[in-house]
């Protein structure tokens, strides 16, 4: 019995230490990237100060950090809920482009005939339906025929990206005579603080549903052991499909928020790398809501800090991408647990 208690304590200790893991990952990532800067003749300390200033130095830089954090947070949640039930949703960028095309179409078709609130609502709904369907397709094919969802997701991303390039340049969706592929401007507009409030609401609602409700319980069960969930009578197929669909809807809401709230029109390639960054945020946050919040904030701060870095000349702003990569790489190993394990082993032998 004593042994059992000891064992439980040990597991607790590891869990406790694990919650600090992302912090260590970030520290190591900064250290390695700093070394890189140093080796190439720059000054890492100056670079990091510039990043920090760019991310938190002034009111406007804080606003910019928040602005970059929001889409990452929402997409991280969309990715996590799929990942929890065994669907690796790598196709978020495709979902975002697809719904961006849809809302642009709504703008073209109804922009002049509908009052703005209804137009906006129509954009939200149509975008959500299309985003949901694009996310549903790989999930359905995976469940029905066993098609690899990662391959499907990558293919969908490329296809939709190229399709939007074509449509923006050759149809009425695009702005005629623009130098780059971009769409016509949207009439509805939402200010960034409103976006922030909506995003926070979505996060809170998600956290509540996941922890306290029956649908959340079912999602968790399908995630922790799909065979057991099915054996107990849960309809695994339905749950996975619904979650995939909701995740697509969330991606599309993110896309609508970005386009209507910030860019005011749809640029070709506007979400480049956003899906990857969101995955990074989700994975370093170990897929818990609080963890993802910190993950998204960190990446958002880095992105906004990159702007600060480009103003100062201490290192090139590309270092930020490098830091992001290292954070992801080190965030996935349980650094502490690894060392703890090694120590325990040597102690036992001696």
């Amino acid at each position: 019995m004593n042994q059992m208690i000891e064992k439980v304590r040990h597991i607790r200790r590891i869990q406790y230490l694990n919650s600090f893991n992302p912090i260590f990952a970030v520290l190591i990532a900064f250290l390695v990237s700093g070394l890189m800067v140093l080796l190439s003749g720059g000054s890492p300390i100056e670079a990091y100060i510039a990043i920090a200033r760019g991310a938190f130095g002034s009111m406007s830089s804080i606003m910019s950090t928040i602005r970059f954090t929001l889409p990452l947070l929402l997409l991280a949640i969309a990715f996590t809920m799929c990942n929890k039930c065994g669907y690796f949703n790598i196709g978020q960028e495709g979902q975002m482009y697809a719904s961006a095309l849809t809302i642009t179409w709504v703008q073209i078709s109804f922009g002049n005939s509908l009052p703005v609130p209804i137009l906006f609502l129509l954009m939200l709904v149509c975008g959500a339906v299309v985003g949901g369907l694009v996310s549903l397709l790989p999930a359905y094919l995976k469940l029905k025929f066993g098609v690899n969802e990662i391959v499907m997701g990558i293919l969908l991303n490329y296809t939709i990206l190229r399709l939007s390039d074509f449509l923006l340049q050759n149809t009425a969706l695009g702005k005629p005579h623009a130098n780059t592929s971009m769409s016509v401007f949207y009439i509805p507009s939402i200010p960034t603080p409103v976006l922030a409030v909506i995003a926070c609401l979505i996060v809170i609602v998600y956290a509540f549903i996941e922890k306290k409700t029956i649908p959340g319980y079912r999602l968790r069960m399908v995630g922790s052991n799909p065979i057991f969930a099915q054996f107990s009578g849960l309809n695994k197929t339905k749950i996975v499909l619904v979650v995939a669909m909701l995740s697509g809807v969330l991606a599309s809401l993110t896309s609508t928020g970005e386009l209507v709230g910030i860019y005011k029109c749809f640029y070709y390639n506007y979400a480049d790398g956003l899906g990857f960054s969101a995955m990074t945020a989700a994975l370093i946050g170990k897929q818990s809501v609080v963890g993802m919040l910190f993950g998204a904030l960190l990446l958002g701060a880095l992105q906004s800090g990159a702007i600060g870095l480009s103003v100062s000349a201490s290192a090139s702003p590309e270092i930020v991408i490098l830091v992001r990569g290292f954070v992801m790489l080190f965030g996935t190993i349980s650094v502490l647990q690894y060392f703890m394990h090694e120590r325990r082993k040597t102690k036992e032998i001696s």
Binding site: M36, V37, S40, G41, G42, F88, I150, G273, F276, M279, T280, L283, A315, S316, E318, I319, V320, I321, L322, V323, R324, G325, F326, M328, L329, T332, I333, Y338
Partner: peptide, 26 residues
């Protein structure tokens, strides 16, 4: 270190993008 290969791949892609851009300018 038993990192999931897909996750590690995604990190690697980010690192490659970052390192090539950074070293190009640095």
């Amino acid at each position: 270190l038993k990192v999931d290969a897909i996750v590690c791949s995604l990190a690697m892609i980010l690192i490659c993008t970052g390192i090539t851009r950074y070293l190009l300018s640095a």
